[in-house]
Design a protein around this nucleic acid. Structure first.
Lengths: 209, 209
DNA sequence: CGCCAATCTGAACGCCGTCAAGATAATCTT
DNA sequence: AAGATTATCTTGACGGCGTTCAGATTGGCG
């Protein structure tokens, strides 16, 4: 109930673009990024290797579409984390933890997202207009006691984003395993790291706990 | 004076392993990671496509060797930055800036370094014994007023490393260009971001400037 | 119904990583 | 010094990849 369009290959297939994207995501989850070839995607969707070229000019363009979905889902994950609101620094830590957990739970998708960004030397513009990036900025803004300039806000957001991404890329590294155990699990480890960043100290009200 | 062993192909070539590594690095610098195929490396070194298999069991093993050199050079870059010593927070910022500048100046090499790490879900162990990683830890340790537990030190190092890596991967993103101009250049931008991390607040003496 | 444009297939190109068989040269043994 | 052993390199092949192109098929529109 999942592989290809087994049921009597329709004439023109209906919606190949969507089917290709879903096939790509399935391969990503199942076999990882290394197994994600255009030919494999076409195979999984039940079409010939050349068929995708009528919907995407490139392999890269297909991956872009997959990445686009990924950014949307990351956005949703951060929204959810922001819904459960705590105060100031905790709220930022929660956001960071949610970000890294998304990357940990969708490693292949996360990799595709950033591979696409690297290839164009930029994060997708959508992020800055109403996406995950501005959720971080808004959260920082809401918690800065009004004493944050526009530039400080931007810099703090960049700092937060970079820290989150760096941790996201390393969270599964085996060297951290002993520390995770020591601190009582992966999420506790994440919180501890984020707190050691002394994150956004310049912008967010500090409670000297 | 650089391409292959043009001078009368010697019988057995002498030191192919080294030649292959250098060929790989040259291709990386010249044409980027996408052009780095084993066959291209062999071509550049002036040998047949199968020759490398007598020195590396895999393409991955060749890349490992290249990455190994990269980590060594990063180590050297951080050492140099640590030599020009300033006080506490500045010293840490300098280390971070040096790290990101290394990545910016050797983008393809840096990518190979982390690609190898990702494939094995771990940073090279050498880093923790006497490499770049422990330079960061030592610097933090030296500047913590003695009130840093072993665990705090480790967490602060991880936090610093992740932040550096995240920034290193994004430093060339076009969205940051306006901010760089506004702050008077890329290095000023880097310093500003690092300072907004409020980095290592838990561990390093804070001067309330 | 007939035509056009969109969609899909089949076969091909050049590239890739890798391997097995054979040639060649350095090294070791005596 | 000569022969045997081993390390090194080449040739040729395999399957898989991204991509293209000519031709078949089909849906939509007049």
């Amino acid at each position: 109930m999942s592989t290809a369009t087994v049921e009597s290959r329709p004439y023109h297939h209906g919606d190949l673009s969507r089917a290709l994207i879903e096939a790509a995501r399935k391969i990503l989850e199942t076999d990882g990024p290394a197994a994600l070839s255009l030919r494999a995607v076409a195979r999984e969707a039940g079409v010939s290797p050349a068929a995708p070229y009528h919907h995407f000019k490139d392999k890269a363009e297909l991956l872009d579409a997959v990445a686009h979905e990924g950014w949307h889902e990351l956005d949703a994950a951060l929204s959810k984390a922001r819904g459960e609101n705590n105060a100031a620094r905790d709220q930022m830590t929660n956001l960071g933890v949610a970000y890294v957990c998304f990357a940990r739970d969708n490693p292949a998708l996360y990799r595709v997202m950033y591979d696409c960004s690297r290839d164009r030397d930029a994060l997708p513009d959508q992020l800055k207009d109403d996406g995950a990036y501005c959720q971080v900025r808004d959260t920082i803004g809401e918690n800065s006691g009004g004493r944050a300039t526009e530039i400080d806000l931007e810099l703090a957001t960049i700092a937060a984003w970079c820290a989150g991404h760096g941790l996201a890329e390393m969270i599964s590294f085996k060297q951290f395993a002993p520390l995770k155990d020591l601190l009582g699990g992966e999420e506790a480890f994440l919180r501890a790291v984020f707190e050691h960043l002394g994150m956004f100290a310049k912008v967010i009200d500090q409670d000297p706990a």
